[in-house]
Design a protein around this nucleic acid. Structure first.
Lengths: 185, 185
DNA sequence: CGCTAAAAGCAAATTCTTTGCGTTTGGAGG
DNA sequence: CCTCCAAACGCAAAGAATTTGCTTTTAGCG
């Protein structure tokens, strides 16, 4: 098994504070503009003092990145369509849609804005996990399926790059990307 | 011809202030940790008052994004190797190397951290420009060359995605990406 | 049942950010 | 060439956020 996500032992005071701060941050992000959210605000909402947050997270970006990474963690297994190609297509379309929403874009930006590459890498790991599930199911059925890294390069990377730097891709374009991944399988 | 980059008429006081603030920001970023750089510091270095910077840029992120976009603007034409494939390979390798440096990564993050999609889009535009130059040269020689969007999806996106979320790709992997772009031409 | 180390609270000191108002400046029109 | 104007800057005070030293609380452990 892996290490704990963040915050020391589960159930302690520390964990409770972290949970309430996370919840407070999510609530505030939901009901006001991102630029209006400050640490003192979150602290008040969470019922802690600002210095607690400053000491634990250092700055707003770190906290928001922490919250965003948690929200980005997939909460369900990829839908099963009967084929690896269909599974990947369904997953990619949903991923593209979620990430290109304004909430999705903000979360990605928050994750990238934090110091150190831990957050982004965790997100990439989540994606890998999901694709691995799909690939293993396909393997069990005896299908050919592209390597994880091929899927990352050909499907995930273009989706994310366009969201961040250009214009989000529509479902047709995403479908095209999935095809090119399989053409390399 | 296009519009002016930023700041009103060239040569005015406004332009001078912008130039000195940009230079001050670059200097400070070069000699101290990014997290230590503040608006009052930049203002002092540039010889203006902080309020000038606050009024013009609003917050540190916007200013740093502005500076980063400017530094990301290509200052030379892609090297000519004799073939479109060679040109693209040379360009992609250099691009990957520049962007995966710690300075490059910080600039990308700064650009993404600013509000509004103007900065990222401009960066994407710069990339498009460079690739267009290569593509047109190839066209003049009668070569086949992939569409710009194919190059973005297959070459640029993976390079940038890996830098941001995973591990920067080495030169061999970049070469492989260029090959896949041509296999779709 | 105390002890202890880690974490939180509190509050003062510092630093950053915002804002109102007066001054400067570059350019347009007379 | 001169005058006027709007935009941009400087200054300084008010308001927020951040940092920090010290005290208090708390969960886990012997």
């Amino acid at each position: 098994m892996a290490e704990r996500e963040a915050g020391p032992r589960p159930g302690g005071r520390s964990a409770r504070v972290q949970a309430s701060v996370h919840r407070a941050a999510r609530d505030l992000l939901a009901r006001m503009d991102r630029a209006e959210v400050t640490i003192p605000l979150i602290a008040a909402e969470a019922g802690v003092t600002p210095s607690t947050i400053y000491r634990r997270w250092g700055e707003l970006n770190e906290l928001l990145a922490d919250v965003a990474v948690e929200r980005l963690r997939p909460d369900m297994v990829p839908v099963e369509t009967g084929s690896g190609r269909g599974d990947l297509l369904a997953w990619a379309e949903q991923y593209a849609e979620e990430m290109s929403s304004s909430l999705g874009r903000e979360m990605i930006r928050d994750v990238l804005a934090a110091e150190g590459g831990a957050g982004p890498r965790r997100c990439c790991g989540y994606v890998r996990q999901q694709i691995t599930v799909i690939a293993e199911r396909a393997g069990l059925r005896g299908e050919v399926f592209p390597h994880i890294d091929t899927v990352l390069d050909r499907v995930v990377a273009p989706i994310v790059y366009r969201i961040l730097f250009d214009e989000a891709l529509g479902a047709e374009r995403v479908g095209g990307l999935v095809e090119t991944a399989f053409s390399a399988a």
